[in-house]
Design a protein around this nucleic acid. Structure first.
Lengths: 118, 118
DNA sequence: CCATGAACACGCTGTTCATCG
DNA sequence: CGATGAACAGCGTGTTCATGG
């Protein structure tokens, strides 16, 4: 049922990367945004903070991530919410689904390039 | 200025193919849809008639296509609107812009595949 | 100013409705 | 029913606003 429309939605793309980052390192909302921006700015793509938060909330709701409040190091008492993996099986399943979607998108793009720029 | 957001929009993708089809053969609205569906159904993508019409109208407004009414062969007197290229220079420019966009999208997708499925 | 959200608004796209041979 | 549109509605996403440290 997944692949209904045209190309992958931004939300799904972000979620895939958030899972990856969360697996590697404990991060919080704006840090995720910072890392994403660093990765994708050169591709002409800059997600917004709202989109990142909404993606994180979805991953919480779907039981893939969990969160805990912490005090930011170095500062007085700025509270931040750090995320980490909650259910690796769900994560793996999600990755599997996204792989299918990404492959499909790649095929579409490649086909368009081939058909229109021979 | 083109590349502002995430991936290519469906409308632009359709327009690119409509130009290609219109260059090869005189077609009308629902025929374009039929050909598109034939090409992309196996990719899990089926555009709607409304989207095709809107794309055609945009190409008219932008001076890339022109249209003329004809009577459909074989039938009594069903009127159809066939399209053909109007300004090839504009078409070439549009293709050039889309090439840039498609390349960018391909890079994004490939990066995601590489980063998340090593 | 940083961090986290929610609220709001806009744009793209799909579904439905309307008209005409 | 085929063909062409317009009108309407939903959803994804960006911009703004709100709250707290």
């Amino acid at each position: 049922m997944a692949a209904s429309s045209f190309l992958l939605k931004q939300r799904a793309f972000i979620k895939l990367y958030l899972l990856k980052f969360a697996e590697e390192e404990r991060l919080y909302g704006l840090k995720f945004l910072e890392v994403l921006t660093g990765e994708f700015k050169k591709y002409g793509y800059e997600p917004t903070h709202t989109e990142v938060y909404k993606a994180l909330h979805e991953l919480l709701d779907e039981g893939m991530l969990q969160t805990s409040k912490e005090l930011k190091e170095g500062t007085k008492r700025q509270e931040i919410k750090k995320y980490r993996i909650y259910d690796m099986e769900k994560v793996k399943l999600y990755r599997k689904q996204l792989k299918f979607e990404l492959d499909r998108c790649e095929d579409l793009i490649k086909k368009a390039l081939k058909d229109n720029y021979k």
